[in-house]
Amino acid sequence: MIRLYFKLCAKYIQARMQYKADFFISTATMLAGNTATVVSLFILFQTIPQLAGWSYAQVIFIFSFAILAQSPVQILFDHLWQLRVHVNQGTFIKYYFKPLPTLFYYVSEMVDLKGFGSLAFGIGALIWSSLELHLVWTPERLLLFPVMVVSAGMIFTALITLAASGSFWVKDSFSIMAFVSNFRDHARYPIGIYDTVVQFLFTWLVPIGFIAYYPSRFFLTDAPLDATAWGAPVIAVILSVLAVWVWNRGVRHWGGTGS
């Protein structure tokens, strides 16, 4: 299945590379978007020394963690944005005829190359802030880091997959996708800027706190590994299972009405 995935991806990249100019423009846009956020934060921190107790470099760290967490969605699951088109035009039917899980087959048809530019930006910004803050990368932190990034990536991927699954029931679900994907931007700020009610919502209801802020804390401070640490992989698994279940239900539902 992995071999198949790379085959499908290679096909897509081959097709894509015919439009080199488009690839360069898209990558430049992606980097410009990230740069614009950094510039806005920079301007903000010209006037204020800290945001909810976090310094400029610390906020950049949280932001770069968010970029890493959203990279899997951006690079591997970008085809979800076109689901509404396939569903509305009926072209989604082709995914029923292959002996493959539909979600896997569907997303493997596209790999978003411009996402790699963003990923590189995120890694660069993470290294910069980490050096700027003289962060100590103890063995425990080095072990914890991949667990946290993968969990965060899974949580955001699951949320987007859930939103995209809306296409199977609702006509023109673009706004649902846009609505959920905007939470990516909200996840970039320290949760401390919100009051306790909103903090609770962003922790347990729409767990975007786990996309960047909670995991970042363990690398930026000596915060003890509490519920927000072991909760991350647990929430990631629960949400992913839920997302796949809802997707499959949607696939069955749509197939039922289409025939």
Binding site: D172, S175, A178
Partner: peptide
């Protein structure tokens, strides 16, 4: 599209 506007 009512759902569209609701989410917007």
């Amino acid at each position: 599209y009512r759902a569209h506007f609701l989410f917007q």
